[in-house]
């Protein structure tokens, strides 16, 4: 082996261009789908109702941004998600920790938690609607539950499965109970707690939109979609879908960046 061979391994500009070009293959199918959509919209007035032309979607984006419809609904959904996340996450982490720490709580609450969790979240909507009405509290309840479920479970699991070797380290160095909790149990459970919080972020966003679809009054992206559907304005519905997707993607990205920072010691392979 000589050095020439070694240097050849490094990517050249040409390699990078090739790699970029190969990466473009992923866009072939999405672009084809968009073209098909656009073609479908030009087949006639009836088709154009469903397959609204892409330039129409774009125009409507500008328009509804300017007239405030998008910002108002978007912020309403975001705010609702944040409150539900805060309420449900806080309660969920607390209950999970209580269950993991105190056996009586675990024994009494766990079966009920498991039973309640079997019902798909949105399946509770008719019940909540009858008990609490169709207003803001009902939406918030659904969203909080969406944050509550995964945080309870993951906090509980995280605290229950602390590595026995790490606990032994604490014992060897005579750590007090508080020190064991502070230096071993808490950081040891943190990755799992974060997993729960990340699931909660994704799940609250989805149920925020879902609850707005069902509980109509008040602004929100779900509500915007429901109204768009009722008025048969596909471009509004599509816009909402796109905004929901992008927002979900971005929040996920932010949360996982935060997790990477807080858990930078974690060995991710």
């Amino acid at each position: 082996m000589n050095t020439a061979v070694l240097t050849d391994i490094r990517p050249t500009t040409g390699d990078r261009i090739t790699k970029f070009a190969l990466g473009l293959r992923g866009f072939v199918i999405p672009v084809l789908a968009l073209v098909a959509w656009q073609l479908a919209s030009q087949q006639g007035a009836v088709q154009a109702y469903v397959f609204v032309p892409l330039d129409g979607v774009f125009k409507s984006l500008i328009e509804h941004f300017a007239d405030g419809e998008i910002p108002i609904n978007w912020l309403a959904s975001l705010g609702r998600t944040a409150s539900g996340f805060a309420i449900g996450g806080l309660l969920g982490v607390s209950l999970g920790a209580l269950m993991a720490t105190f056996r009586p709580v675990d024994v009494l609450v766990n079966p009920i938690y498991q039973a309640v969790r079997q019902v798909p979240l949105l399946g509770y909507i008719p019940l909540i609607s009858l008990w609490f009405g169709n207003g803001e509290p009902s939406k918030l309840l659904i969203i909080s539950l969406a944050a509550f479920y995964p945080t309870v479970l993951n906090t509980y699991e995280g605290l229950k499965h602390i590595d026995a070797r790490h606990v032994a380290v604490g014992r060897i160095f005579l750590a007090s109970r508080w020190q064991t909790f502070r230096h071993i149990v808490l950081p040891g459970a943190l990755p799992s707690v974060f997993t729960g919080l990340m699931q909660a972020v994704a799940f609250t966003w989805l149920s925020s939109v879902g609850s707005e679809l069902f509980f109509n009054p008040g602004p929100g992206l779900g509500n915007m979609m429901a109204n768009g559907q009722a008025a048969f304005r596909m471009e509004v519905v599509l816009l909402a879908v796109i905004i929901i997707g992008v927002t979900g993607y971005v929040t996920n990205l932010i949360v996982s960046k935060i997790a990477d920072r807080v858990l930078r010691w974690r060995n991710v392979r």
Binding site: R25, I29, L122, S207, G210, L213, Q229, G245
Partner: peptide
Amino acid sequence: KQAEAYVLPGFHIMRQLPTVALIPAFIMI
């Protein structure tokens, strides 16, 4: 590898759209 290169990115885009949020659009279609 070819199939992965063509299909996977589209999949990741679709993943960002929660099914529940697609209900109104699908009803219209």
